[in-house]
Structure formats: C-alpha cells, structure tokens
Write a protein that binds this DNA or RNA. Sequence first.
DNA 1: AATAATTACTTCATATGCGAAATAAAACAT
DNA 2: ATGTTTTATTTCGCATATGAAGTAATTATT
Lengths: 143, 143
Amino acid sequence: MPHLTTRHAPRLIYLLTTAQRRLEAWIERETEGMTAARIGLLLALPAEGGVSMSALARALDLGAPALTGLVDRMSKAGLVRRIPDPEDGRSSLVELLNEGRVQRQQALERTRRLNDQLCEGFSDAEIAVVARWLDNVRVRYGA
Amino acid sequence: MPHLTTRHAPRLIYLLTTAQRRLEAWIERETEGMTAARIGLLLALPAEGGVSMSALARALDLGAPALTGLVDRMSKAGLVRRIPDPEDGRSSLVELLNEGRVQRQQALERTRRLNDQLCEGFSDAEIAVVARWLDNVRVRYGA
DNA sequence: AATAATTACTTCATATGCGAAATAAAACAT
DNA sequence: ATGTTTTATTTCGCATATGAAGTAATTATT
C-alpha cells in the first residue's frame, strides 16, 4: 500500500474532509428539520432588521448562488423573508420571521454548547493551534 | 452583536466548515476536470485488482449512495469500471482503467505535495494536535 | 429445506455548494 | 446625457453528500 504522506504527516486532507462532513451530518441528525447551513444563516441575522444578500454571503463565506438557494429554502420554510433594499434597487435584504427568531434562539444555545464540546479534551493553547491551522487553510486556499 | 462562543473559544464550527470547503474548491480549480472526491477514490484503489464498493465506502468514509454516484460518474469518465465479485453475487468490485492509472499517479504526487503544504508553518507537535482534534471530531460525531 | 434476518448495492428525494452565464440597477466616464 | 463598467442577485448545469426505501443475494435459524 503506497504512503500518502511524507515526513510522517497524518492525512490531513482526509481528516479535514471527514471531520467536517460528520459534524455537519451530526448537526442535522440532532436537530430535526434544521441544518448546519440554516443555522449559519439564522445566526448571521440580527433579531431585528435586514441584512443584504452580499453581506450574508461574505459573513457565511458562501458564493452568491449558494446563498440564493439557502434563502429560497428558508423562505419556503417560513423562517426568513426577502424585502427590497430601499437604498439600492439591485439589493435585497433578508430578515427573520417569527418562526426564524424562535429557531435562532435555540440554535444559538445549541451552537454554544457544541462549540464548547469541540474544545473538550484540549487546552486553550491547543485549541488556538487548531484554530490557527484552520484559518490558515481558509486564507491560503481561498478563492 | 451577540457572541457565539464561550470561554474565548474561536468559532470552530465555522472555521472547520469553511476550511474544508475552500480546500475542496481549491483542489478542483487546480486540477482541471479532477475533483477531491475522485482523487480520493483513485488513491483508494490499488494499481491492479478490484476493491468492493463496501470496502471503498469504509475507506473513504462515505455512505453507500455517495459511492454509487461517484463510481457511476468516474465510470462514465473512463477512469474505473465495475466488475462482478466472483466470491459474492451481491458485491461488485471497482478497478482502475488505464486512464485512471495515469490520473492516479498524478493525483498521488499532487496529494503528497498538498499534504506537505498543509503542514508548513506548523511544528510536528502542532500538526499532531490538529490531527488529534480532527480525528476526535470524526470519531465523536460519527454516525 | 424453508423461512427469516442480514448484507451489498441501487434508486429516489432533498440539501448543499461551485462556476459560468444572464439580468438588472447603480456608478463611472466621456 | 449617454454609453460603459461595475455590482447585486438569480438561473442553470453539475458534483457531492445524506437518509429512507427498494432489490437481490448470502447467511443464519428452525
């Protein structure tokens, strides 16, 4: 069996991919009807007022088409709605509906808990290394 | 703006998700026609001989439907083919075609380089922490 | 040997994401 | 003011993944 690694390095690509996929699937199994992407959008929205699609795409690190689809699905689910941007005719703003506000609150708590869980078994210094590594990948391989 | 973290912990869920997505997209931009998933399958196959779908699914940490689709697409692309398993009528084996062998060799080299790149700027001890954290997520949130 | 349970895949419906191209409104330049 | 360029968003085609349900072949049970 050929080695995929050099310098005794672990298979980071595999580990990164599978960790992400499993965590996302776990979130969706746990939450019954909610998904990681939807939670991301709920948490990126303020309780009151709207945010433009482009600002959301930037905040969530998504391309414009991905956001269009996500907002479409969440609108159909009654969590958010689009309103026209009074300042700019090209832009639309996304805002929470009541059901979205309820879900947002739950998501906020669950997300805090999950994030803490992800630190368990690791020192603050170790978590800082993990965060630095992930951010490095993000920046280095960003579009 | 509400805080999403406790104990000064970075937003690990966001970092994990975006790092994975950007790395995957980068691989696909770099390779012209190849994708991260296809590379994974190519590297999971031996130069000669077949491997069962279930063994591949295990090796790649994919569900059976995902593998079915991946092998379908790669068969259509002329990289691999299915052959019936002589030992078990339910099972089929996947094996490389010539074009797949060529691609596999390139993928092997590129993957080694990328994996090394992912270590740059981090000590071996730090990479070990990252690997342990990722594997921990994998195991803890596995199905 | 006949039935039941398990295992290996596939099919289907759905969510998520990307890149390329289309559309429409705003900003800029001449 | 008018033509050009940029920006905001959507649409389209495709790849990838999940879970649920279906099919076929093997194994286990009685």
